[in-house]
Structure formats: C-alpha cells, structure tokens
Design a protein around this nucleic acid. Structure first.
Lengths: 327, 327
DNA sequence: GCTGTGTAGTGTAACGTTTCACTCGGCAGA
DNA sequence: TCTGCCGAGTGAAACGTTACACTACACAGC
C-alpha cells in the first residue's frame, strides 16, 4: 500500500504538503497540487485508516446493533444503512444480538474496542446495557425510542389508526389482537394507536402478546380464534401475521374467507405470500438513510439536542382482509 | 481510555513490560505480572485497536461481502458469521453490494482501507473485481466456488439428485425448470445435479433462467406453465419458488392441486407460506460458522492449499408437491 | 575465576498520519 | 527602505502499540 511518504518522494515535496493537498487544505500551489493528486492516483493511494484513527481518534466506521436479522425488517434496514453509510465513506460494523442482552453488551464492548465513531442501534429493550454508560460516542436509535437519544421511526400511532379506520370501513366489529411485546415501545405504539382509534374498546374480542420474531403457539392462536368471535386479527408485524395465517391454515381456518388478518411493516414477503397481506407500509429504506444522516451530523458535532424523526406510514390494501359490508 | 503508559506509570515498570505481560509473553516475574494485571483491570484498560493495527498490520476485524440481504439466505448466513466471529473476538464489517459489481468493488476498497484481516465473500459473479487483485489478505468464499479460493458450500449436486429422485417417486414425468442464473456456479450445480439424475432428459418440458432475487415475470411463468405440460416446477431457490407460487395464483393455477413446486435452501419462510414449501435444506448456520473457522486458520497462517468444505443437504417434504402415483 | 546460559526487565525505533510552529521569499503600504 | 503580512512549503512531534536489541544480574559447570 502506498503511503504519503511514497507520494512525497515521487513528487519531491514533504509529507506534510502531500497531506495538506489530499485533505484539501489551501496551502499548496496549483502545480504541486496537481502533481500530488496525479501521483496519488497512479500509486493507488488509500489513507491508512488505522494511522488516521490513531492520530485523530476517529475511525470512519460505525456500529449497527440489531436484535435479529432473521426478522426481514432488519436486513432491509441494514441494507439501507450500509449503502448510505458506504456512499459517505463510512464502514458499517454489524452486531446481531440474536435477542440476547448479553449479546448486545458484548457487541458494544467489541465496537468500543474498535473505536467506532458512533452506533446505530435498535435496542432489545428499555434498559441499555451497562456497557453503554461508558460509551461516549453518538448513538442514533432506530424504531425504538428511548429518552435522551436521537431516534428515527415511523408514525406507528398513525399506522394503528389507519388500520382501525380500515377495519371499520370493511365492517369488522369484533377484533383479535396479536400484539408484539408491549415492553417494546414500538409494539405498544402500534397497538395503542389501533385501540385508541376504535370508537368502542369492547370491539376487542381478545388479545395475545407474542414475540416480534413470529414464533407463536399455533394451539393458542387456534383456540382463541375458534372460541371467540373475532372476524379480523390485527398483528403486530408481518412476521406474526404470516405465521398466524399458517397456524390458522393448520386449524382449517382460511384467510380471508373465514377470518381476516392484517400485518405491519410491509416487508417484501407481504406481497409474496398467499393471500397477499394487507398491511401498513413503513419506509424502511428512508429510515435507514435518515439514521445515517443523523449519525453524520452527530459525528461532526453539529447536533446538540436529541431529535426525533417520524416518517408517515400508509395502508397497503391487498387480499388478506375480507369486506363484510357493502361498499 | 487508559493506555499502556498509564499502567506502566502506576506500577512503576516500563511500557514494554506491561505490553509483555498483557500479551502473555514469558519475560516477567510473578509479582510484577500480577500488579500489571491488577492495574489494567482497575483502569479498565482496553487495547487501542488502531495503534495495534498500525504496528502489527492486523485489525481483528473481517469483512463480510454479500450480494443481497433481501434474499433471506444471506441474513441467516450473516447472523451465523457475526456470532461465530464475535465469540472469537472478531468484528464483522458488512458490505451489501445490492447485486451491483461496482458496489462489490467499492466495498472491497473500503474494507482494504480499514485493513480488515480477511474477507468472507459470496461473489456476485465469476469475475472478481479488479480491486481484489491487490487485496493480499485471506478470502473465504461462501456458496459460490471459484478457483484458488477456500470455499464453504452445500452439496448442491446432491440436492438436485434428491429432488430428481423425489420427483420421480411422486410420479412427475414432465418438469419445468425455473433455474437461477447459470453463470453462477451454485445455480448451475443445482440445476445440473437435478437434470443429470433424471433418467431421461426429455422430461424437461421447459426451462427459464431467472435471478436468485425472485423478481420474475409472472406473464412469462404463466404462459410457460399454461402452454407446456409440466406437472412440477423445480426452482433454483425458495425465493423463486415462493414468487412462482404467487404468480401461478394470479393466473388461477393452484399449488399443489394444479401444479407442484419445489424450492431450495429451506429458508425460514419455506415453512410459513401456504402451501408449505417442499425444498432442500442446507445448514446455513453451519456454513457461516465453518467459514469463520477457515478464516481464522488462514489468519493465523496455517492453511496453505485452498480447501473446499461441502455440507450434506436433505430433502424436506412439505405440502407443495402432489403425489401423482399411488405409493 | 571464567564462561555460558537463563531470567527479568529496559530503551528506542518504528508503523502512517495529522498538527503545530516554523522558514523563506515576495510584495504592498507607509 | 523598512515593516508587516501573505502564500507556499517544511520539520518534527505525537498518537499507542509492538519488536528488536540490549543490560544487569544470578547461577551452574568446569
């Protein structure tokens, strides 16, 4: 790998001058500047990040700490984050905690050792790992707000409301809820947004809290739908919805003929499964890009107060909800 | 952050001695050793990776270059790689090229700048980016073999054979092929494995090559299945299979009643969609873990010749294939 | 008493970059 | 002509770590 010294030697100037030119500082004449640039290109010069990091304390790498890549929301997010970061010259270091708090702590510890410039983080739960207390770099939260941090998320209350209005419009008056884990803020917002937009809370026939990972007990779901009279099951995310449809099929209950189902997230699969899933679309790509943008601002020391960016969501009507009343 | 110098000052020895102790080198007495260790713990010492990297040229970080996180095979792989790497103290730096060769090249360039110790790579195509030619660190390939590199993959020929035997057993004698991109070795192995295990090649009614990303033209698929007489469509991976099922549904063709479909990979969704997908399971987690293992051997300079690790695959029989002959 | 060997520990030079303080002309203004 | 300033460029130190060559001493063998 070519170094500043190599370039300096070739052009016949000092290392300092080369550094100045390459960093766009003004103190260099026209022709020297050009010679340096040319030599750098010829030699295929790439700054040695380790050396830069040692000198400046910044690495131009960020951490991305996620709970579970197996939930398709996160790969889409990771893809957006990585691509946006890369086009800003930032390297993304991935941690997948697999839903385990120790994993999250380990991950942060590893990221600290490598002195990443910041972390984009979708926290497992409301309590930050102890490791984080002595992590002095910027943190941007995604999807799951916590006090004192920047956060990027979708307007989940709006999503819930959209779903409630739609349910009513389609004539569903008795509703089952397959909510996500309510200790997670974003699950609660979705659920409350829906429930609060209902004119009458008694329309909730039953509610079951399950994990966002979509591992649910088919027996429980089957029993619930059979015993109580819901005509629509509103699920905390698409993964839960798709799993639920599968469970129902095993009990001989067809969607949407026998019961309707809605999802949340509009992951790619929502459009691929049968029946195609009616769900709430959130702009996952935009969320990832925005998170990187906020991170970059923090990294350059611009931001002072914690900011909250909330994206609008939209209803995507497909085939998993049956109309019970004439239009 | 505490440095070696801080520890040295506190204990009253030289920086070299502290370094020696912390790196487990033998030249230090019992008591000094203990004092140093104690001081390191008290001060919360963490080695500065940047400084280490600059001195030793190794970073204890590896790259993971993937074509498309949107294909669920890759998140599962990434999860396994990250977790295995982390438990070996290795940080994983992610690149998602989104199927673009320039993205792959950019990614490698970024990884080189950051001087990762090696790259686990699922290449986009048979030609390595030019960037790679001056990348001197170890590379371990996943899923897609190329000459001169270590590779970890599944026995795709076996998978194809298993599928062919199963198809015959179930009485399917006219078969449509929705193969992946044949310029990719792993797609070709799957396809050839299947075709070669067929007693009579004329049983192939039609063949269409599509992307592994499952974006396919429903018109083309519909036309093909309608016009020619296949009773079973063998797909290059689960994503293609699930998309195909969706396309067929849009044309009013039901699976498995009207036509049967098989996938390949056994991603999590294979079990969740309706009908549940009959497919070939490959041990994605084991593949990721093995890739990291090979990488670690290479990093410590053990391996000399390029090695190929091939995992067995298994048929997973579910609901997407109809039996046409009595048992 | 001398040599050889082993243990415990030190000093210093790197690695590649950035930063600070500096020099050296030339030129404008008084 | 002198002063001061500006543009163009330089030298050296520092970041935290490791590797190498070295010292100092003790002790065994002859």
């Amino acid at each position: 790998m070519a170094t500043l010294r190599d370039i300096a030697a070739r052009v016949g100037v000092s290392v300092t001058t080369v550094s100045n030119v390459l960093n766009g500082r003004p103190n260099a004449g026209r022709d020297i500047r050009e010679q340096v640039l040319r030599a750098a290109k010829q030699l295929g010069y790439r700054p040695n990040r380790a050396a830069q990091a040692m000198r400046t304390g910044r690495t131009r790498a960020i951490g991305l700490v996620l709970p579970d890549l197996t939930n398709p929301f996160f790969p889409e997010l990771a893809q957006a984050v990585e691509n946006t970061a890369r086009s800003a010259g930032l390297l993304v270091c991935l941690i997948d905690s697999q839903g385990k708090v120790e994993g999250e702590a380990d991950g942060f510890s590893l990221l600290m050792q490598h002195a990443v410039d910041g972390v984009i983080w979708c926290p497992l739960g409301p309590t930050a790992p102890a490791t984080l207390s002595n992590f002095s770099k910027p943190v941007v939260l995604v999807d799951r707000p916590q006090p004192r941090y920047d956060v990027v998320q979708s307007d989940y209350a709006m999503g819930g409301r959209l779903l409630a209005e739609y349910a009513l419009r389609m004539g569903h008056t008795s509703i089952g809820l397959l909510s996500g884990p309510l200790r997670i803020e974003s699950a609660r917002q979705r659920r409350d947004g829906f429930v609060n937009a209902l004119p009458d809370k008694r329309r909730i026939a039953w509610e079951l809290n399950v994990g966002f990972d979509g591992h649910l007990s088919c027996d429980a779901v089957g029993a619930l739908t059979r015993r109580r009279s819901a005509t629509l099951v509103v699920c905390g995310n698409d993964l839960i919805a798709i799993s639920a449809i599968r469970c129902l099929a095993e009990h001989g209950i067809r969607v949407p003929d026998d019961i309707s189902v809605t999802g949340f997230d509009n992951i790619r699969w929502a459009d691929l499964v049968t029946p195609r899933l009616t769900t709430i679309a959130q702009p996952i790509g935009a969320i990832g890009a925005k998170a990187v943008e906020l991170m970059r601002e923090r990294m350059s020391g611009e931001a002072l107060v914690s900011r909250r960016t909330i994206f609008d969501v939209a209803l995507v009507e497909r085939d998993s909800v049956r109309r019970l009343v004439p239009r």
